[in-house]
């Protein structure tokens, strides 16, 4: 295999990363978050450098400068998510990582996805998370230091988890870096063909562009878009039925959203339906699960009734104690 980064270097860098991550996991005795973060960043830095060097050596372009910044922020905030002892902060850091990921999406010319991500994730899901965190953090345990519960304060088996996870990462990266040369980007012709296919479905957009460019007269309409050896031509049909070929301007390319929309709705209509059902079910499930069950068994009822008859109002309190112990969805309280 033709590795982009030499495996030994890869392993070393990953090992450094691993050590850093393992260090930064919260422990009972110490919490070397910063040091761990730095070590991990070193490891990542080594690898990024190695990757950059490899691109330079191969004469291929480096990624956008923003990439480096966004990647560092994303990974760093991710590290904070898993190491921060306060769940609220973790969630906030996660929002940060989502934002930087959205930045990466934009770099990758996936604007629609970037905004969707921000809206759905950072805007909706993470806020729900925050609500839940707030809700669940009304811990009744007071004696914990700084209100951090024990299960947040101490990670579980950081070394094992890190070793296992980084082993997986190592195998994955070996596979990626070994195999990445085997795939090649599509040729320009294919790309253009793909764009043409989108444009064929957007006669209005073509008309507008042609009109703006003055290549088309009023009263004419675009009958189709074809791609030939010479370039992309639109078949413009005049009102009297005559047709002529017009070369499309270079700037006329479909936007990301347009392409995505055609792809999504054209190729995966069934899947969208299924996704909708999933969402519906999830909603129903969430409603049912999060309901507050108050299961009062007959015996307790009888006891309470008897107590009431005796005039002991405090007995009713025992009924409430069972709240939340409901066994499942079938229980109708």
């Amino acid at each position: 295999m033709d590795f982009i980064v030499h495996p030994v270097l890869l392993f070393v860098a990953l090992a450094v990363c691993g050590v850093g991550v393992a260090l930064s996991i919260p422990r009972r005795r110490f919490h070397a978050g910063l040091i761990g973060g730095i070590i991990a960043a070193t490891g990542v830095g080594i690898l990024i450098t190695a990757l950059g060097a490899a691109s330079l050596a191969d004469g291929s372009p480096l990624p956008n400068l923003f990439f480096h910044g966004l990647a560092i922020i994303a990974l760093g905030s991710c590290l904070q998510v898993i190491t921060h002892r306060r769940p609220v902060y973790a969630a906030l850091y996660f929002i940060l990582s989502i934002l930087s990921t959205a930045g990466l999406y934009i770099l990758l010319a996936a604007e629609f996805m970037a905004f969707a991500l921000v809206i759905i994730y950072a805007g909706a899901i993470l806020i729900t998370y925050l609500f839940v965190i707030m809700l669940a953090s009304q811990s009744r345990v007071e004696d914990e230091e700084e209100g951090i519960s024990e299960y947040d304060a101490i990670g579980r088996g950081p070394v094992t988890a890190t070793i296992v996870s980084f082993a997986l990462l190592a195998t994955l990266t070996v596979m990626m870096f070994g195999g990445i040369r085997e795939i090649s980007p599509p040729g320009a012709a294919q790309v253009a063909q793909a764009e043409t296919v989108v444009l064929q479905r957007l006669p209005g957009k073509v008309e507008k562009a042609l009109t703006r460019e003055g290549l088309m007269n009023p009263g004419e309409s675009v009958a189709g878009v074809e791609r030939t050896e010479a370039g992309v031509f639109a078949t413009v049909e005049s009102a009297d039925g005559g047709t002529r070929q017009v070369a499309l301007p270079e700037t006329l390319t479909p936007t990301n959203t347009e392409g995505l929309a055609f792809n999504l709705l054209g190729e995966y209509p069934g899947t969208i339906e299924i996704a909708g059902v999933i969402l519906l079910m999830a909603m129903l499930g969430a409603v049912v699960l999060a309901r507050k069950f108050a299961q009062i068994d007959e015996e307790a009822k009888a006891t309470a009734a008897a107590a009431l008859a005796e005039g002991r109002a405090d007995a009713i309190g025992t009924l409430g104690a069972d709240v939340g112990n409901g066994g499942g969805a079938t229980s109708d309280g």
């Binding site: 982009i4 990024i48 691109s55 372009p61 480096l62 956008n64 040369r181």
Partner: peptide
């Protein structure tokens, strides 16, 4: 937007 090559892909 990012000019993709195998190396850039590798970064991502």
């Amino acid at each position: 937007p990012e000019a993709m090559s195998q190396h850039v892909l590798a970064h991502y």
